[in-house]
């Protein structure tokens, strides 16, 4: 059983909170789980999500849960459609013409990129198709695999 704290994830900010939480003191009791929750600096975010009472959701890496903020931003775009119709592309809470770029900018810190290096659109597989179609060509690959042919 590896308990190694081989990688210390940097802790910056949220000071004081969570500092006593040491999983090396693991105990298999319910009280221990409660203590970990009490010492969790991110605990308040839980209230921002729609959680079904009595249900434990362990599938957030297939489909994440709806948060109130996500619901709100979706409703804003619907409102903009209602109110501005075609002009929603350039007006409203979040003008649609620039929306993909805006979301790219917000996502950039999550991947360690500059704002203009990230864009939102398509689907995972459609984006791979785009990227493969862009990067896998004769000029870029030189003679590499066409030589194998």
């Amino acid at each position: 059983m590896g308990r190694g704290r081989d990688l210390q994830v940097k802790n910056s900010g949220l000071e004081g909170s969570g500092e006593n939480m040491d999983i090396n003191n693991f105990m298999s009791t319910k009280e221990y789980a409660k203590t970990l929750d009490q010492e969790d600096p991110l605990v308040s975010y839980r209230e921002e999500f729609y959680l079904n009472p009595g249900m434990i959701y362990m599938d957030g890496n297939s489909l994440g849960l709806l948060s109130k903020r996500a619901e709100k931003s979706l409703m804003k775009s619907l409102e903009d459609w209602k109110k501005y119709a075609i002009d929603g592309w350039t007006e409203g809470a979040e003008p649609w013409f620039y929306f993909s770029e805006r979301l790219g900018e917000l996502s950039a810190p999550l991947v360690g990129a500059l704002a203009d290096e990230v864009i939102m659109g398509g689907s995972t597989t459609a984006n791979l198709h785009q990227l493969a179609a862009t990067f896998l060509n004769r000029e870029l690959a030189g003679i590499r695999f066409w030589r194998m042919n």
Binding site: L66, K68, S73, F99, L106, S107, M120
Partner: peptide
């Protein structure tokens, strides 16, 4: 994509 704004 609109829900992403609040989520991000």
């Amino acid at each position: 994509m609109a829900p992403l704004l609040g989520s991000l």
